[in-house]
Design a protein around this nucleic acid. Structure first.
Lengths: 338, 338
DNA sequence: CTGAAAGCGCTTACAG
DNA sequence: CTGAAAGCGCTTACAG
């Protein structure tokens, strides 16, 4: 770690400029000297200091990912699976993803500001739970290229780029599938995260021509245990099928069904949402609704990078809105109404 | 972002040194001026550039976490839950965790070197799958404070700090519990990750006085689907209980059992390992063996930080080895032998 | 293609 | 307690 570019360039017998060019790939340099320098660097173990480099370049090749909701952001399997996709997409574009795992700082604004402060990041992907809070977060990091990911409808606040996730197209497919199998009395276990989806559920039910019974809609659930509890409450109301706003909730519900001696899907059908990896392997395997994560990831990363390009070429900024729809995956947790 | 410390300090009417002291908390400064500076910084939106700062301090307050095995490092629920714990522990000590989510670079050595290169990190936690590969990885980042996390026995290569995870204490508890419920013919579905655990399983079986039948030991499994497949192969051999080297495998096995019309635990008992969050909510809920993740995390972070301290005070380095044992969590996936 | 030198935006030892 | 100035280790416009 003692070796710096000045010392190293002396050893090789070139200037620091030449060493810098050898590593960066920028500027003109002969193949021969570049190779000699890189070879020698490997031999003596020299690597340019990234902080000095970033101080000059004003680029870090690091993109942040920030989840603004959920008590235990990193605990959430969905967030993790999405983060993984985003990391892949970032990597394809030569960027590293910096996943914010901390919960320090009292408010989301503080945490986010801390993450982006001092030019630590080239850009940031902020997953928000609604327009109001999202707008506040954006405000706190103005100047840093950002894209907002939200599952609620969004109308522009300023010139932000938004990736809007529409779970309702897939959810409608699920409801129609259930209806086609004779289900009419369909319950809903809603998540507390992200503002909930029960309004959309009710709309879909009406569109499909089914009655909405508020008594079989439970809101504010998050954890596996919440899913169990909600199912326990719902079951006596005798819905013939239940949609759950997340796969986590559905897994809790599956577990509770078995605990109550109810067979899935013979006695009751169950559908989750998120299409997490484990959903295909619950007992029975869980029908679910997914939003293509790789597409969310690609859209978000591409947006950040094009903002950076535009900034450089001083193009005027325009707001943009990308809507990503969802799909339905039927599995053995649903069956005809008994 | 245009505002730098020179410009900002002029606006406040103090020197850059004073501004620096206000932000860092280091050096003497009167409460009054500090507050005035911080207040003004908030007002005009000034934050010191982190790269310039790190270039000076030679500290980044970032600790890396690197998983050297697993094809899909970030896909793995266990890795994620561990990462979360480590992030918490890091935060308590004022450090941020940088989780390596990328897979670029052909070899692990390259990826790791890229992560730690150029003083980007204060230290790194490397989760390895054996001593040989671990030693090679350490070699590639010599100079960077590191701690090795491994679930295989480790003898010192140099002066490295090792956190050794011993899953076998908890596994022995599980086997004894099964034995006490009349099980004798116990199968094992081993993981490909981390070099496998079947040798330890066999040893425990012998210690408990049970016969080891190689025909009911399956190695090299990773995914949920592998767990299904392995269970499918094992079932005809009629073990009365099966241990799985991970909860992922056990969940696949549970699913397959149900697919084959076998009841758990009436027809066959099943035990997983890792104590993942979902294990309590499978159907039936999964008995498992865990290693206290918060303890792994705390030990690893503390080790890195004390290496940094020792470096500063030029204390001689000594190797160290921390062994963390495991616990057994019985749940409804096991029962008396039928 | 290569080098000398100014500059990136902080931090801190030193002097007051 | 505060400031002037050297220094952290790179990068690149400029000159050759």
């Amino acid at each position: 770690m003692a070796l710096d570019i000045v010392e190293f360039s002396k050893q090789v017998g070139v200037s620091t400029a030449t060493v810098s060019r050898a590593f960066s790939g920028r500027g003109r340099i002969s193949d021969k000297t570049r190779e000699r320098i890189l070879e020698e660097a490997r031999r003596v173990g020299f690597t340019p200091n990234v902080h000095a480099s970033r101080l000059n370049l004003k680029r870090t090749s690091q993109i942040g990912l920030f989840y603004s909701f959920s008590e235990e952001p990193i605990f959430d399997y969905y967030n993790m699976e999405l983060a993984q996709e985003i990391a892949k997409a970032a990597e394809k574009r030569g960027q590293a993803l910096h996943l914010e795992l901390s919960r320090s700082g009292k408010s989301n604004e503080d945490r986010l500001r801390q993450l982006t402060h001092g030019a630590a990041l080239d850009g940031i992907i902020v997953v928000v739970d609604g327009r109001a809070s999202g707008a506040r977060l954006l405000e706190s990091i103005r100047g840093c290229p950002a894209v907002v990911v939200t599952s609620k409808p969004w109308s522009p606040v300023g010139k932000e780029i938004v990736v809007e996730l529409d779970v309702f197209t897939g959810m409608a497919e699920a409801v129609r599938d259930l209806a086609s199998q004779g289900h009419e009395r369909i319950g809903f276990i809603d998540t507390a995260a992200n503002g909930g989806k029960s309004a959309g559920f009710s709309r879909i039910m009406r569109e499909v021509g089914l009655r909405v019974d508020p008594k079989i809609i439970i809101e504010g659930s998050i954890s596996f245990a919440d899913g169990q509890k909600a199912f326990h409450q719902l079951a006596p109301q005798q819905p013939s099928a239940i949609l759950c706003a997340t796969d986590i909730l559905a897994m809790g519900a599956l577990n509770e069904a078995s605990g109550m001696g109810l067979r899935v899907p013979q006695d009751i059908s169950l559908v989750g949402m998120d299409d997490l990896a484990f959903a295909a392997y619950t007992t029975p395997s869980l029908s679910t609704v997914g939003i293509p994560r790789s597409q969310i990831a690609k859209t978000a990363i591409d947006s950040i990078l094009s903002q950076l390009d535009d900034e450089e070429s001083e193009k005027p900024r325009a707001s943009a809105r990308h809507v990503i729809g969802s799909y339905y995956v039927p599995r053995s947790s649903i069956g005809p109404r008994s």
